[in-house]
Every structure is written in structure tokens, then in C-alpha cells.
Design a protein around this nucleic acid. Sequence first.
DNA 1: AGGGTTTTCGACTTTCGGTTGAAAACCTCT
DNA 2: AGAGGTTTTCAACCGAAAGTCGAAAACCCT
Lengths: 229, 229
Amino acid sequence: MSQLAHEVLAAVLQVRERSLQVLLWRRAREPAVGRWSLPGGGLGAAEDVETSIRRQLAEKVDVQQLAHVEQLAVFSAPDRKPGPRVVATAFLGLVPADNDPEVPDDTDWYRVDALPPPAFDHGAIVLRARDRLRAKLSYTNLGFALAPPAFTISELREIYSAALGYRVSATNLQRVLSRRGLLEPTGVTAAPGPAGGRPAAQFRFAAHGMEVTDPFAVLRPPQDRSTGI
Amino acid sequence: MSQLAHEVLAAVLQVRERSLQVLLWRRAREPAVGRWSLPGGGLGAAEDVETSIRRQLAEKVDVQQLAHVEQLAVFSAPDRKPGPRVVATAFLGLVPADNDPEVPDDTDWYRVDALPPPAFDHGAIVLRARDRLRAKLSYTNLGFALAPPAFTISELREIYSAALGYRVSATNLQRVLSRRGLLEPTGVTAAPGPAGGRPAAQFRFAAHGMEVTDPFAVLRPPQDRSTGI
DNA sequence: AGGGTTTTCGACTTTCGGTTGAAAACCTCT
DNA sequence: AGAGGTTTTCAACCGAAAGTCGAAAACCCT
């Protein structure tokens, strides 16, 4: 079995200014000078890939603000980078909206739908991350990782719309999430915008909704009516 | 960046004898002599991980019969195997029911819910594969990869029940799949069983259902009623 | 006070999935 | 051939979930 290098990369996504954006840094040296790269780096000898990506992301953003990290896929085309072969494990990371983490000078956020010239296969990785997020938003409770600690339904609607790429109904969003027991009111009402309007109630995600749970199952097990409550 | 070995492994699942089973081979040499291992091997210099796992699976089963292969996850704990470190990319493979591929002498099928002693972390990989299959059966059209080319609704129900671990309603299964446009009748009616009974109509998965499509979305895009048909 | 804006919420409709039961179409045994 | 058993098929019903709509509430500014 041949020895080869292994790196970890993360597409860290956040909804910023009403659009889905990804954290990229500009390469100052060859290869791919001037192109934009995902954060990450080589896998250390004593760490698994998840430990490694969290360690390396800590250099770019405050880890406290990473609400969710999950494996995305392995990218292993032999020619995916020039030079000695490197296999990459790619991750999806999510930062809640309204956070504005300090980032290094060479690093910044870019719209996923208008990426600057990406290095190597990093463009494909970003798109995979976006697609994974969109799918999971719909059939899991992953939304908690994109939302700030407290939010109004309108704000949450903006976040979902930006991430999904189409407008969702605020009424429906509230009902779907409520029915799953994910929303709870904070009691606070937010101040209205400059144009006035009724003040909006603030919500937060329920504590038990802060982990990704099983997807909604379409073919459910039969209901057992014998076990009366 | 340190150099290390990379292997590919596959949990190849099939519904056999009304239960979900996985293809395992018995280790004849150290390490882990006598324990049961997933098929796979080292990543070649000129191949990506998917090419590699397909090549290595060809030594165990007829590749024609692999209806679906997808990446599962990377397993990278530094101590997942004794000896020099090896990172593994694990795959989920699916073989349609009713196929009975030739397998080598040291290789056989085992029930996922009663695994023989697994080598290394291969037990965890099998369970991850099972969970992924169960989730995707529910919210995608992945069922096509478990079903034979033609089947009755009862047979399909057996397959789904075995894979999911609970009984599903035949009536409901047929309607859900039909509504998604995945089933089409072959025109043939199967012979009744030994106890008689009405002969069952045969179906097949529609051609456009033979790839995994987008999951069922809960928060759909708004319906555009302006584009009348 | 009046007009504009935004949020909230109830009500309606449609779609989807779970359940049931009757009818259809076969078998075997007498 | 008829009776009785078995399995499949399908229509009908029901409830839950989700999409849509509009009125009322609660704020702003002039």
C-alpha cells in the first residue's frame, strides 16, 4: 500500500447579507498563487480527521462560533493538486448568522453563487457543501446551526431563504418547526424596523434541537395501538 | 504533512432470506486472525477512491450486480488498526435481492443484526452503512438498488421490511412509490404461491428512478401558479 | 388621526400517508 | 363443480402535515 499525504479541508458556510457565503483564503505562494482556497491542512499523526479540521479551523475562526461540523466526502482524484499526491477529507462547517468572527488578513467570506477563482478542486467542494446543506435543511433540524441564538420568524425566514435559494413562507416555516418542537419563545419582542410595523416575537431553538436528529421518515413503522397511553 | 497509508473498504449490503446481510471475509493471517473483515484494500497510485473500491470489489463479487456505490465516511482514528497508521474511506454498496453472486471461499454473507466477530472497526462501519441505508430508503428513491429487475409489491414489501427492520404496508408502499413516478408495471403477472391466491402484477423501477435523486423536501419552493400548463 | 408597514394568527385547501375492508383471482380438497 | 382458504388489488376513509390567504394586531411617521 503506497504512502501518501492526507489533508483535511472545510467549507465553512454562513448566511451573511442575505446570501450564503463561504470562508476562503487567498494563496500567496505557488501552487495556484492568487486563487482562493479552503481552510485546512495536513492530518497530524495523533489526530483523526475531525479533530484535525477543528484544530486547523481554530486558526481562522473562533471555534466557539462553529455550530456544526460534519464530514462531507473524500476527494481523491490523483491529479486534484499538482505535485505529490494528496487525498483530502472535506468537511461542512456552519456558523450562525449575525456572528462576525475575526478572520486573518488573507481570509474573507465570498458568496457561494459567485465564487472567486478557486484553487484545485475547492470549487467543487464548496458546491457539494452547499448541496448537502440544502438537502439537510429540509429533512433534518440542521437549521439551528445557521440561526443566531435568538431570532424573529422573519429573520429565520431570511436565513432559510438565503441558504435554500428560494423564498419560503414565514407562516409555514414557523408551523413546521413548531410542530417538531424545535422553536420556543424567548419572551422578548424585538423592536420594529425603521418603517414601523408590529414588533416581532423572538424565538430560539429548543435545547434538544441543537443536535442533528434523524431525518423525517416517509415510510414509518406501523402504529401500535395496543400500547395505550 | 506526514505520509500515511490509505485503504478503501466497502460494506456491501443485500437483502437475503428476508434479512439484511453484509459481505465479509475471514482473515487467515495476523492481525486479527479469524475475525471478519470488509472487502477492500490499499488505494492504488493512479486511482481515486471510488475507482479503487470498485476494482477491489470486483475480486469478490460480479461488479455488474452492484447497483449502487456511495461514499459513507472516513474512518481515521490513529489506533483503528494495529501497526502503521491506515486511514480508511468506507463505502456503502448495494446488491439487488435475488442475485446470488459467486464469492470466494473465505467470503460469505452475514446478517447485519448478528455479525460475527469483526476485525478492527469494521463492525462500526457496517452499522453506519445500515443506518445510512435506512435513512435514504425513506427519503430518497434508493430502494431501486435493493430490488430485483422485476418484482411484485409483496416482494418489494419484504425487501423494504428487511432493510428497515420493521414491517411496512404494501398498500402504502405502492402508493408512495407510484406517486413519485418510480414504479411501472411490466405487464407480466407472477404465478401465485403454493397456497394459491390472486396472481400478483409485476413491476419494475422506472428508468429515471435508477439514480439516487434529491431527497423529498419538506420546505418546498412556492408553487408558481402563473405558469399554467 | 390617518396612512403605511410588518408581524401574527386563524382558517381554508391540498396533498400525503396510514388504515381498513371488500372484491378479485387464484389454489386445493372433497 | 363447489366450498373454503389464500393472496393480491383497489377504492374509500381518515387524520396529519404542509401550502395559501387574508384579516387583525401593533408599531412607525406625518
